[in-house]
Amino acid sequence: MDEGIMSTIIKFKNITKVYQVGDEQVHALDGISMQIQKNEYVAIMGPSGSGKSTMMNIVGCLDTPTSGLYELNGTNVSDMDDDDLAKIRNKEIGFVFQTFNLLARSDVLHNVELPLIYGGIGSAERRKLARAAIERVGLTDRIHHKPNELSGGQRQRVAVARALVTQPAILLADEPTGNLDTKTGDEIMMLFDTLHKEGNTIILVTHEEDIAIHAHRRVRLRDGKIENDEMVKNRRIIK
């Protein structure tokens, strides 16, 4: 096999997602074909309702397409069952959500450990990996705090640590700065930039140009179709 195929992480072939709303069919994704290579930094953009989140959910194996083929790391995941998808989500995907989605009753350490528990990692190893991921996002001094004892930016860092801890193939972030002010938003984006430099593959959903400018590649959606797919020349680098 040649180098190009080896490094393809995501391969979409004519993916559609159709929702039945009453008598009407909503084509949230309407024939998407694209590929994403290892260590790419992609921003998925488009107006509200264009299908960004739907695409993200399918990439992240939270949802399955109505039709089309999705290969993740060379494995066809388009028609896997729930539990197989759960396994893929656990091992290959790291999610960062707009609303953080941390477990409110658990402290930072436990939130970050959780994917490892579901991954069947023994407790000593688990603790070590979780602490490393927390250190990675700079929250070692908050390790036993509950989410409601943290600021928004800190919560999102915990979410990033949780996404990183299993060393997934892709980091998926759906509007990660949507609930943060500009300054903390920038801090989170700096974190993503660093993670990208360290070799991670990152896919970012956003409708803000300021945020999208961090990525190397921009995919614009409109009405469930790809309108535009371009490499970015003048990336913004935060000092």
């Binding site: 992240g60 939270l62 729930d82 539990d83 759960a86 396994k87 989500r89 656990n90 091992k91 999610f95 989605n101 941390l102 477990l103 959780l114 994917p115 579901y118 991954g119 949780r162």
Partner: peptide, 16 residues
Amino acid sequence: TKEIGIRKAIGAPRRT
């Protein structure tokens, strides 16, 4: 429901 969604998103199978 939300908590269940979070747990599933990070890989909890049905059995769990």
